[in-house]
């Protein structure tokens, strides 16, 4: 299989995720876009692992092990992220990211 397919898939997911992170107002939707970006990274890791294995062999399965770690970290991220969103909601009664601008000049 040509390596370009999974890599393009990852690039597409990542770019779409960036668009979502930058343009969505609702913090939960921003989190969902972050999930897309994380998924893109995982796809890239797995694909790279296979490319490397094809070329020189990879007894350590580095890419897949890292992909697993990223999955775990992603799950932790969602947990903490949603907790922060809940806190935001409790303090401001909405979860619009662009309203949370207390730190501006």
């Amino acid at each position: 299989m040509a390596a370009i397919y999974p890599l393009t898939f990852a690039a597409l997911l990542f770019s779409v995720g960036v668009y979502g992170v930058l343009s969505r107002r609702n913090a939960v939707l921003v989190l969902m876009s972050v999930e897309l970006m994380i998924a893109a990274v995982v796809v890239n890791l797995v694909a790279m692992n296979e490319i490397v294995a094809t070329q020189m062999g990879d007894p350590l399965l580095t890419g897949q092990a890292f992909a697993l770690f990223v999955l775990g970290i992603g799950a932790a991220e969602v947990g903490v992220g949603l907790a922060i969103v809940l806190l935001l909601y409790r303090n401001r009664a909405n979860v619009n990211v662009d309203d949370a601008e207390l730190m501006k000049y």
Binding site: V30, V97, D98, A100, E101, K104, Y105
Partner: peptide, 14 residues
């Protein structure tokens, strides 16, 4: 310079 600090996180990320 502080005018650049709009407080909008998404603008920063952009």
């Amino acid at each position: 310079v502080r005018l650049a600090q709009s407080g909008n996180v998404q603008l920063y990320a952009g």
